[in-house]
Amino acid sequence: MSAETSPKHYVKIWAILVVLLILSVLGPMLGIKLVTLLTAFGIAIVKATMVANHFMHLNIEKKYISYLLIGMVLMVFLFVGGTSPDVLMPEGQHWEKQVIEQPVELDHGGHE
């Protein structure tokens, strides 16, 4: 049995994940946008990689499975990349769209 697949190892990974989780919750409390983004999404990526590698055992799986999954993630990025000039932008070359922000009414009832 390798050290990679021992219960002890799993518990260790779990502990790191929990610490990272706490960091990601605490980070935004500083109120700095960059820190928020870094702690929130940077840590999410780190956590996801750790789960994938150590719990799903991607680290000892055949390499092409990783490529496959990464490829699928790239597909999502490709989609977002091709779509964002239209959907993400409020205006572009020779066009503009009205961006309707919905008013925040906290006392609005739960009915239409």
């Binding site: 999954l69 999502v76 989609f79 964002s84 959907v87 993400l88 961006v99």
Partner: peptide
């Protein structure tokens, strides 16, 4: 693995749309 591969794009499509809208709407 293939199931997960197909799920990645399903969630990816939804979350990608969400992120684009989110960045547009302050």
């Amino acid at each position: 693995w293939w199931v997960i591969a197909s799920e990645i794009v399903i969630f990816g499509g939804l979350l990608g749309s969400y992120v684009m809208y989110r960045l547009l709407h302050d």
